[in-house]
Design a protein around this nucleic acid. Structure first.
Length: 714
DNA sequence: GTAGGGTTAG
């Protein structure tokens, strides 16, 4: 055994068992298997062309075998490479194994073949086999395997290859060094990547692209642009990789002008029609919440691949255009030969989940079973989330329990599902079970558990868990955790404790914490404190419409209409829009979405009559409209009209009219439920003898016989 | 004689 094989084998014997058992490895494997399945290197359009070539290749192959040329290592190596280039790794592997005296080139071909086909785990497997067989990798072998370490995040072995490379004294090699820059970039070790780059005696365009990409991809867009401008003056040739890096750099810099600038640069350099460049531009606009710009590029694309479709789906979902997302998904399903992958499936499950579209969600679940994605834990956790959010905790539980393997995300989804439905104790039980199974909770797990306590009104239990977290489990609370505890305390009316907790935090509270405190102020009518906190929030997140709305609502509660006007004006001046409220209801598999006071709704006249009838009936039972819920300065009559046409009431009235007595009415809304709708829903459940399940932005409310499961805390 | 580095979604 040579020095190198000792290093590698030592690494593998020490690291293997723990690494193989780690989630990182499993997730990576999953990704790889998926990627290799979903991204066959042959696109549909070129399959025929490839078959022709393959036939050719097979003929040559047959000729080589029958004429006894297979012993020729050069020919066999070339043959292995040809099969590998077609993505036919099984054939490549077979030929490779029949080579009697494999040389470094034979091994390198197989390694790079796997790497090129995104099968990094196999590439590394072959590499370690090669090393174990006593052969030393050369510079080409190293440059082929180094990206695999980077892509799999194998920092230790990556670093040892690097030090091996230096120790062996091969001398400088621009390709190996560029690959190392790329590897450290993947590890997120920007400084090390820069060091390797700085020490390179020779650099080419690819090296410059690699370092520019490294900075751009890690949020240092400014440095990416700086390096680009530096090298540009020295005869550097811009290619599509450069463009991609600059798009990524632009994404990390605030301000739409940078993005537009790079978009026009892409056009000027003639790369705007490149599929990857277009996708990257779409991605940039999606990240900037410029859904329209993303949609424009999407529509202009002649060939829309699954990535483009998915990006657009994500754009609609993250922009909270839920109905548009569903429509987009249905369209996507009709595209022939579009192979859906886990990201696409997760996107659509998220849309179903947010809309409470159980019927569609079930359909997607069936599809997932059909195309064999049930073992994907990313998809699995989304299925759990979808059922739990569609008020179907039972199906979530059945799926969860049927999973052969569950990662922390699946547990989190299940815990959150119980929490949202008000089952605080069950959520805690799940959490304890999970700890018992030695599955490490992550930040979200504790957030889910604390939220569950909050939703169930289990204040002491939640505080108890928080103190265990710090003292027993050695978990350093994050600002999300603090935000949960603030919420927990404010729910118990302990606003003073919440405020002193925020002041005692070991780091500066972020917007999330202040936001929790602000909501608490609104609930408890602490206007002055609320305004003070709002000012802090505006400094932290000047562009979030949500806080302006909260502040405006607070002024309204205090009767300070001047304040309301001021806030609304500055909101408009900034060009910010608040999310329009909507409620949806699924009847016989059809999803109906209502927006407040929406007169152009196709079911408008039907709903109008139903609402009138519904309001009359609950008024007889004692319902008095809560005009305080209308946070604008208007006459009472107008306020009544606004209240009666809240999206939630429209959806409920429609549900009452369209479903049989005894059917549970399930509503999903994107915002938190307002006081008046909550109050009215209690009357509706009693007067019409119906169970109403309302999922708001935070949790479920089950109204039955005049009471709500949230016990009036939300 | 055979082999190599830098792209896009949670």
């Amino acid at each position: 055994m040579n020095q190198f094989s000792i290093v590698v084998n030592r690494y593998f014997s020490h690291q293997k068992s723990s690494y193989i058992n780690s989630n990182i490895f499993k997730n990576n494997c999953f990704n790889l298997i998926q990627r290799s399945y979903l991204r066959p290197s042959i696109s549909h359009a070129s399959i025929l062309q490839h078959v022709k070539e393959l036939k050719h290749l097979q003929q040559v192959h047959a000729y080589i075998v029958t004429s006894g040329l297979a012993q020729n290592i050069f020919l066999s190596n070339r043959l292995t490479n040809s099969y590998a280039s077609c993505g036919l790794m099984n054939d490549a592997e077979q030929i490779f194994h029949r080579i009697p005296c494999k040389n470094v080139v034979s091994w390198t071909i197989l390694i790079s073949g796997y790497a090129k086909n995104y099968r990094f785990v196999e590439a590394i497997g072959v590499f370690s086999e090669m090393v174990a067989s006593g052969l030393l990798p050369n510079d080409i072998t190293i440059s082929s395997i180094v990206p695999a370490f980077g892509k799999l995040g194998l920092t230790q072995i990556g670093k040892s290859i690097h030090s091996f490379w230096i120790r062996r004294g091969y001398g400088s090699n621009v390709i190996v060094e560029t690959a190392l820059v790329g590897m450290y970039s993947r590890f997120g070790h920007v400084g090390v990547a820069r060091k390797v780059f700085d020490y390179m005696p020779e650099r080419n365009d690819v090296s410059w692209n690699a370092i520019i990409e490294c900075y751009s991809d890690h949020g240092f867009g400014e440095e990416g642009f700086r390096l680009f401008n530096l090298v540009r003056r020295e005869g550097f040739t811009v290619d599509c990789f450069t463009i991609m890096s600059l798009i990524s750099a632009a994404s990390s810099i605030d301000g739409s002008r940078v993005g537009e600038g790079i978009h026009s640069f892409a056009s000027r350099t003639g790369f705007q029609n490149d599929q990857l460049v277009r996708t990257a531009l779409m991605n940039m606009y999606v990240n900037r919440n410029c859904t329209d710009d993303a949609y424009f590029i999407f529509n202009e694309m002649k060939v829309k691949d699954v990535v483009a479709w998915t990006l657009m789906l994500t754009a609609f979902s993250s922009g909270k255009y839920w109905a548009k997302a569903l429509e987009h998904f249905n369209e996507m399903m009709r595209v022939e030969d579009l192979e859906l992958d886990s990201v696409a499936l997760m996107g659509i499950l998220k849309s179903c989940s947010s809309l409470g579209a159980l019927h569609q969600g079930r359909g997607v679940h069936a599809l997932i079973v059909k195309i064999g994605f049930t073992h994907d834990m990313f998809v699995g956790s989304s299925i759990i989330d979808m059922y739990a959010n569609c008020a179907n905790l039972e199906d979530a539980r059945i799926f969860f329990e049927g999973m052969e393997e569950k990662d922390v995300a699946c547990w989190n989804a299940m815990i959150a599902g119980n929490g949202m439905n008000g089952y605080g104790n069950d959520a805690i039980d799940l959490f304890l079970q999970m700890k018992g199974l030695d599955i490490n909770p992550d930040e979200s797990t504790l957030v889910c558990v604390l939220c569950a306590c909050s939703h169930a009104g289990m204040v002491d239990k939640g505080l108890d868990i928080f103190s265990h977290m710090v003292k027993t489990w050695n978990i350093v609370p994050s600002s999300r955790h603090y935000a949960c505890v603030v919420d927990l305390l404010s729910r118990a009316g302990r606003l003073r404790d919440a405020y002193s907790l925020v002041n005692s935090m070991p780091f500066d509270p972020d917007f999330e914490v202040y936001c929790a405190l602000l909501s608490a102020c609104k609930v408890h009518g602490k206007i002055e404190l609320g305004i003070e906190i709002s000012n802090k929030l505006f400094q932290l997140e000047p562009n979030d419409a949500g806080y302006y709305v909260l502040l405006s609502n607070m002024y309204a509660l205090a009767g300070n209409w001047e304040g309301v006007k001021m806030t609304r004006v500055s909101l408009r001046a900034k060009g910010l829009k608040k999310d329009p409220g909507f409620s949806s209801i699924e009847i016989n598999g059809e999803l109906y979405t209502f927006m407040a006071g929406q007169k152009d709704h196709p079911q408008y006249s039907e709903v109008e009559g139903l609402v009138k009838f519904m309001i009359e009936r609950i008024k007889e039972a004692g319902y008095v409209p809560d005009t305080k819920s209308v946070l604008q300065e208007l006459s009472d009559d107008v306020k009544f009209d606004i209240l009666y046409h809240h999206s939630e009431k429209l959806a409920i009235a429609f549900g009452l009219g369209r479903t049989k007595q005894g059917t549970i009415i399930r509503i999903t809304k994107n915002l938190r439920t307002c006081n008046d709708c909550h109050y009215a829903s209690k009357f509706i459940s009693k007067v019409f003898e119906r169970v109403l399940v309302v999922k708001d932005a935070n949790r479920f409310h089950v109204f039955e016989g005049g009471v709500c499961s949230c016990k009036d805390f939300w």
